[in-house]
Lab assay of single mutants.
Amino acid sequence: HNLTITQGKLFFHYNPKLCLSEIHKMEEVSGTKGRQERNDIALKTNGDQASCENELLKFSYIRTSFDKILLRWEPYWPPDFRDLLGFMLFYKEAPYQNVTEFDGQDACGSNSWTVVDIDPPLRSNDPKSQNHPGWLMRGLKPWTQYAIFVKTLVTFSDERRTYGAKSDIIYVQTDATNPSVPLDPISVSNSSSQIILKWKPPSDPNGNITHYLVFWERQAEDSELFELDYCLKGLKLPSRTWSPPFESEDSQKHNQSEYEDSAGECCSCPKTDSQILKELEESSFRKTFEDYLHNVVFVPRKTSSGTGAEDPRPSRKRRSLGDVGNVTVAVPTVAAFPNTSSTSVPTSPEEHRPFEKVVNKESLVISGLRHFTGYRIELQACNQDTPEERCSVAAYVSARTMPEAKADDIVGPVTHEIFENNVVHLMWQEPKEPNGLIVLYEVSYRRYGDEELHLCVSRKHFALERGCRLRGLSPGNYSVRIRATSLAGNGSWTEPTYFYVTDYLDVPSNIA
């Protein structure tokens, strides 16, 4: 807008934040220059609390790290170098490059900038070799853009010569660093050979998330399962459950009422301010606690030095998902009996873990797994792929695949051998790939016309006998059925096997 004052003059007093240069501009645009008398524009009460600059400061050096910015700028000295009290560095987070010096300023003089007072450097006698002032900004957020400017702080001049310097606002972004852990990993099994893994992005990506790394490792069953005799009275049979499938998407929606109208769909109840505040506090606490764990609990591995020492970490090797089922080394339970199943799973520490690289999504279907087997899954978020990966501390989750139908069934015939004193040795093959492992066998036998009897055969007993022995049988026709019990439950009964026990007292003698 054009402003013209045809008559009258300007009068400025007691404006401590208004620089004289701005008042002189007002004289020019209003056409009143030359009308004012000496005392109409006070030299001592206008701009006496402001830094009124008329020179431009330029930054000469900028260096960044993930949490620091090192700045240096060209030296500046007023005509009387004693008038320079120091520099004021202003900075704040700036997602967009549209910041002005006066953003967030209120009537009390406060604003949204963080201000650092910096002492002037030592003055050199040689004007050509003056030290460049600077400042190291610490405690910054990774991968965050900051708006920065600097200006001088000078003393009051009796001659009211307006001098000083100020830089333009520059924008500097800190470097990326390792992201925080992925949030809320959930693993479920939808079949006997697959596990579905879902997660949420890290709360602090500290860069642009480029991919996720998912490692999985087959877990050995508890050692007590191999040692305890679950045929003993009072000892509860062990059981394991597989990871249940995901709930429906509708039930997972946030901010939804727990109660549904019987007449149909209901609208979600909005969260109160107290609920939102509580969630923010919980989120802040979780982030602080995660940072504490990362800094205190997890110790970084030592990389190899120039002395030739090897990095103890196993090298990563990509495998196809079809090879995942046989990740671990199978060892027989008892070496003397080769027909026992290889369900003991000690994992070799030198073995390469299978892994998958996930790009542009937060889910993965891990296939080719062994049925009813526990897996430990390790999830890392990465925001750099080359020249070397920059990934987060791992988040861990466990899951067990679903049982395989008929995996616990005894394959092959049940054979028998009759000894003296009416002892019958029953023999059968253990299931080759049971659900988890076989903890015991149930032997059901009966003599024709009598009630059915049951015998429990422990895992250890089966390994020693290759089956079991029935003792003290009365003469007669017998039928026997056997079924295995694994961590997933009972298998199917075998087809009945028949044998006849004679009275050993009636056996004919070869003595003449």
Rank of each mutant, 00 (worst) to 15 (best):
S203R: 10
N206P: 02
N208L: 07
T210S: 15
H211Q: 06
H211T: 05
Y212L: 02
L213V: 06
L213Q: 14
V214Q: 00
V214F: 09
F215N: 12
F215L: 09
F215H: 06
F215A: 15
R218N: 12
R218V: 03
R218G: 14
Q219H: 13
E221T: 06
S223A: 12
E224R: 14
E224G: 14
L225T: 11
F226R: 13
E227M: 13
L228E: 15
D229E: 05
D229N: 14
Y230C: 09
L232W: 02
G234H: 08
L235D: 06
L235N: 06
K236L: 10
L237W: 14
S239F: 07
S239L: 14
S239E: 08
S243M: 12
P244E: 12
P245A: 06
E247C: 08
E247D: 05
D250R: 09
D250A: 08
D250Q: 06
S251W: 03
Q252G: 13
Q252D: 15
Q252P: 07
H254V: 06
N255R: 12
N255I: 08
Q256E: 04
S257W: 13
E258D: 10
A263I: 13
A263F: 04
G264D: 15
T272K: 02
S274W: 10
Q275E: 10
K278V: 09
E279H: 12
L280N: 10
S284R: 07
F285N: 04
R286F: 13
R286A: 14
T288N: 11
T288D: 11
F289I: 10
E290H: 15
E290N: 04
Y292C: 01
Y292F: 07
L293C: 07
V296P: 11
F298W: 03
V299R: 14
P300A: 12
P300W: 06
R301M: 10
R301H: 15
R301T: 14
K302Y: 11
T303W: 12
T303L: 05
S304R: 08
S305H: 03
S305F: 13
S305P: 14
T307H: 11
G308D: 06
G308V: 15
A309V: 12
A309N: 09
E310S: 13
P312K: 08
R313W: 14
S315W: 11
S315R: 09
S315C: 11
R316W: 14
K317G: 07
K317D: 07
R319T: 05
R319A: 08
S320W: 07
S320I: 12
L321Q: 15
L321K: 15
D323Y: 14
G325Q: 15
V327K: 15
V329H: 03
V329D: 15
V334P: 11
V334W: 13
A335E: 13
A336N: 12
F337Q: 11
T340E: 14
T340D: 14
S341D: 04
S341C: 09
S341T: 11
S342M: 06
S342K: 03
S342Q: 15
T343L: 08
S344A: 09
S344M: 07
T347I: 12
S348W: 10
S348A: 14
E350S: 11
E351F: 04
E351I: 11
H352T: 04
P354Q: 13
E356V: 12
E356M: 13
K357E: 14
V359W: 02
N360S: 09
N360V: 11
K361R: 04
K361C: 09
I366R: 02
L369C: 15
L369A: 04
L369K: 01
F372V: 01
T373D: 03
G374Q: 12
Y375H: 08
R376E: 04
E378P: 01
L379N: 02
L379Q: 01
Q380D: 09
N383E: 02
Q384H: 06
Q384L: 07
T386L: 15
T386E: 12
T386N: 10
E388D: 14
E388A: 06
E388V: 09
E388S: 09
R390V: 06
C391K: 02
S392L: 01
S392Q: 03
V393Q: 02
A399V: 11
A399L: 12
A399T: 08
R400W: 09
M402V: 15
M402Q: 15
P403A: 08
P403Q: 05
A407P: 02
D409V: 12
D409R: 14
I410N: 03
V411R: 14
G412N: 15
P413G: 15
V414D: 00
V414L: 08
H416P: 10
H416A: 05
E417R: 08
E417Y: 02
E420S: 04
N422Y: 10
N422P: 02
N422Q: 13
N422C: 05
V424G: 02
M427W: 07
E430L: 03
K432F: 09
K432D: 14
E433P: 02
L437F: 04
V439A: 14
Y441T: 02
Y441R: 00
E442G: 07
E442P: 01
V443F: 01
S444P: 00
Y445Q: 02
R447F: 02
Y448R: 12
E451K: 05
E452N: 04
L453P: 03
L453A: 03
L455N: 04
L455W: 06
L455G: 08
C456Q: 01
C456P: 05
C456Y: 02
V457Q: 06
S458K: 14
S458F: 01
H461M: 11
H461G: 10
F462M: 11
F462T: 03
A463D: 13
C468T: 01
L470K: 01
L473K: 01
L473M: 08
S474W: 10
P475M: 08
N477M: 05
Y478F: 05
S479N: 02
S479R: 13
S479A: 09
S479T: 15
V480S: 02
V480C: 15
R481A: 10
I482W: 00
R483E: 00
R483L: 03
A484E: 04
A484M: 05
A484P: 13
T485W: 09
S486I: 00
L487G: 02
G489H: 14
G489N: 14
G489S: 07
N490L: 07
T494I: 03
T494Q: 03
E495V: 05
E495H: 15
E495W: 13
P496L: 05
P496G: 01
T497R: 15
Y498N: 06
V501P: 02
V501L: 06
T502A: 14
D503A: 04
L505R: 05
D506S: 13
V507I: 12
S509F: 12
N510Q: 08
